[in-house]
Nucleic acid binder design. Structure first.
Lengths: 342, 342
DNA sequence: AAGTCACGGGCAAACCTTTTCCTGAAGACG
DNA sequence: CGTCTTCAGGAAAAGGTTTGCCCGTGACTT
């Protein structure tokens, strides 16, 4: 009967430890020890306390616990740019890993606005969060949080901090590009075009660089002799596919910077009557299911394991919370997902 | 110099109200009143306290405040099913509205698992959240949270509660269907097919019902005489378009249950050489930009104003927190977004 | 000049749990 | 039988803020 409360408890309506103690016939301190395993006491006494807890439906007041311990059992999750396709899996991974440690996630969306970021940072500091995870949609490095209380550990996920003494968890663009190229070469392709996003995005540059390097290691060159930088859109994929086929009609594979581009490429190929994967293979990047699965044919693609990035960021943060922070950049490997486009 | 701290404050490293009081030469209680506007005191005294606050960089300890007030200035946001396309905007709208009230959002993802839901609910209760918003991806009603402490107000967003004495905020499927049909009829279409998702989804049923009613009111019938229920996928859109054109070649408009279906329909039309919107108009539902904008041509579609749903849910929750809850179902109107497909 | 009043500000309780230190009693050992 | 140790459990401080109540002082009233 959790509704009943010991005499004298009414104010909050919830049973306090004092009520438990009274019911068990012990002092408050003893009741606390009985619950937390500390102190020495007769097993039967402990049991009496536990029974009282059950009878009253007692749950400790976390505000009081936090006040005493200085910990809030809460971490802030700041997403730099909305809560989109990239930050969501990171967020879920983090929530999952933290939830196991009884820690909850406080969500802060800055919408890419520095003012808002400051505001949230203050809020989180005031709440005495145990730590903060910062994540963004881009993989480009970002400046560290400004004015952060040095006692609050921070982990940057996906977008690393520009400060190397911070802790960051990032995706392995190099490995991703390698997986894609190895796959294409292993399946007999030799004339590979690379179509990707804007050159000012690090992700585009890195993937392109490593794709080229991998080709070069096999004694090959990109189909058109260069990388096609553009936008992260289907429309660009379609345009670029046209351009590539005009310049290098013998192209037998496209490695694309993301799944949208890949889908655009696949659409153009299909509309031109070129068989995928019969004549030309297409490999995307992101494993964004709504794109990859809806594509005709479904896309072979690189999965960045974003959930894993979130999980690892959370684990690093947990480490930093109760031991010393281990600065540095942690790289999470990608995964090749083979579907029918290659 | 926020780093300096009054003598005796070291334990936490952060300035306490006691330090402020000491520096200002007043008692702790007076300092508190000076900050919170309460109590009567000489303006210069208040100013001295404010100066001390500034000098020490004092920020009140929220754990202590919460302990005292019983409020956590936090609400839980439970998403029933991942954090997807539907819950994200709701979440952002809620965060926005709550942030204005100094309230933060605690994120709980149940992954559709009842055990997890219980676990999170307990966690939120233990944290003494001020309220809870429950949201899901489907618009079908869901059973209310079980075992919820009646003192914690709850608002259901998107997925209403099956209990009419709860507070729910939902989308206006009827209005959405009406907007779409009015638009099509107003632009001269007379033979409209409706292709939508599975019949066991309320959203599909409702939109279909109201679309038919609206046609009937204009003395019309669906193009094929029936509604085409299927899946929420592009593939289904493509198949359904074929089927519709076979049965009713004179069809001059498609109203689709979501943007994916609409995109599938548009693809089929284009591949058959049927002009959109010249020969046939296509209207989608959801205004999911990655679909609606990538479609050729970009889709006219219905926007459910999900962010607004989140915002209103948050406002209702704020109401319920400091006054009496106002049970009932609140309906948020949709918005027609006209693009080039109609 | 004595009584009132208002104003400024202090005191202390309350919010609830954890943890350290301490005490009283009982058992063990010489 | 006395002293030492051990053990069970209690008392109280600490963590920081808010707020109701109270008191002293100076001004004002009659």
């Amino acid at each position: 009967m959790p509704v009943t409360s010991a005499p004298g408890s009414p104010p909050t309506g919830r049973a306090r430890l004092a009520d438990v103690a009274a019911l068990a016939g012990v002092s408050v301190g003893t009741a606390s020890k009985a619950l937390n395993g500390g102190g020495r006491m007769r097993p039967e006494t402990r049991q009496r306390v536990l029974d009282a807890v059950a009878e009253l439906g007692f749950r400790p007041n976390q505000h009081a616990q936090s006040l005493h311990s200085g910990r809030s059992w809460t971490v802030g999750l700041m997403t730099t740019d909305g809560i989109g396709r990239f930050s969501t899996p990171v967020l879920l991974g983090a929530e999952d890993a933290l939830g196991a440690g009884k820690i909850s996630v406080l969500l802060c969306d800055t919408r890419g606005d520095a003012i808002r970021e400051q505001h949230h940072l203050r809020n989180l500091t005031d709440r005495r969060v145990d730590g903060i995870i910062v994540t963004g949609r881009r993989t480009d490095p970002r400046p560290p949080l400004v004015g952060i209380d040095p006692r609050i550990p921070v982990v940057y996920a996906l977008s690393p901090s520009t400060d190397p003494t911070d802790t960051s968890v990032v995706t392995d663009d190099r490995g991703g590009a390698r997986l894609a190229m190895e796959h294409l070469l292993a399946t007999g392709r030799t004339t590979v075009a690379h179509v990707t996003g804007p050159e000012h995005h690090q992700a585009a540059r890195e993937r392109a660089r490593h794709a080229r390097e991998h080709l070069a290691a096999a004694g090959l060159e990109p189909a058109t002799g260069r990388v096609h930088f553009g936008e992260w859109s289907e429309a660009w994929g379609r345009r670029a596919a046209d351009a590539v086929l005009r310049t290098a009609p013998l192209t037998d594979a496209f490695f694309c910077g993301n799944d949208q581009i890949a889908r655009g490429v696949a659409d153009t190929l299909r509309e031109r009557g070129i068989g995928v994967p019969g004549d030309v293979a297409v490999v995307g990047y992101d494993n964004w299911d709504t794109m990859a699965l809806a594509c005709r044919p479904p896309l072979t693609t690189i999965d960045m394991n974003l959930t894993e990035i979130g999980r690892i960021a959370a684990l690093r943060l947990l480490e930093a919370i109760d031991t010393e922070p281990a600065p540095g950049v942690y790289t999470v490997p990608c995964r090749l997902v083979v579907r029918e486009s290659s």
